[in-house]
């Protein structure tokens, strides 16, 4: 694990640590839930795992020595999500090693014509991506994280965040252009 020292865990923290946690970490609960939601897809699972991650963060809080509270929390949320996926949906983590084989050109005129309010279509396309592509897109485009923060959260070396995003965007463009007919019939 790169990035932050999570330190040793303790079961109970005192009121001063709780107050610090409320100031530095709890304001990022939305960010935590949003990341879990896009990694796990189902809302109920995401709520359970977010709650578990918040408690873990609290117990590891003594190892947090200031700095970026959001990135620190999101790293814990991400790890908790992957542990949960390995246990409950191991199949989803297996799909990502063959992607180099069929990487296709992706920029087409159709992909330029995504309408901005097409939330459902975008959401579904995003969900078809393997988790490791999905998470960099969510962190970059929805959460507005810098490359440095993405590297800390996902344990990707900072030098490869750019190419990871490039490939993720390519996959998303492709997912969006692959199913237009299907989408049209569903919307009618």
């Amino acid at each position: 694990m790169s990035g932050f020292d999570q330190g040793r865990s303790s079961d109970v923290l005192d009121v001063h640590e709780r107050a610090r946690f409320e100031q530095l970490v709890l304001p990022h609960l939305d960010a935590a839930f949003n990341l879990a939601r896009w990694l796990l897809k189902r809302r109920e699972d995401s709520e359970d795992v977010t709650q578990e991650a918040m408690l873990r963060a609290f117990r590891f809080f003594r190892g947090f020595h200031g700095g970026d509270g959001r990135a620190w929390l999101l790293q814990i949320v991400r790890n908790t999500c992957y542990t949960w996926l390995e246990k409950n949906r191991p199949g989803e983590l297996m799909t990502e090693f063959d992607e180099e084989l069929h990487l296709q050109p992706s920029v087409t005129p159709e992909s330029l014509a995504i309408s901005g309010d097409n939330r459902e279509r975008l959401g579904r396309a995003l969900e078809t991506l393997p988790p490791r592509f999905r998470e960099v897109l969510v962190l970059r485009e929805l959460e507005g994280c810098s490359y440095k923060e993405i590297a800390a959260i996902t344990a990707i070396p900072i030098g490869t965040v750019m190419s990871a995003l490039a490939r993720a965007r390519q996959r998303l463009q492709r997912a969006l252009t692959q199913t237009p007919a299907q989408e049209a019939s569903r919307e009618l």
Binding site: V12, L29, D30, M54, L55, L122, L142, R169, L172
Partner: peptide, 30 residues
Amino acid sequence: LRSSLQRSGLYEQASVSLRKKTRTELDGAT
């Protein structure tokens, strides 16, 4: 693509019940 993603309202916020459950859990660990 970026502007679609950012304008799409895909960001999902924590519900009130998750907020409350989290606080209750934290109370138990404080």
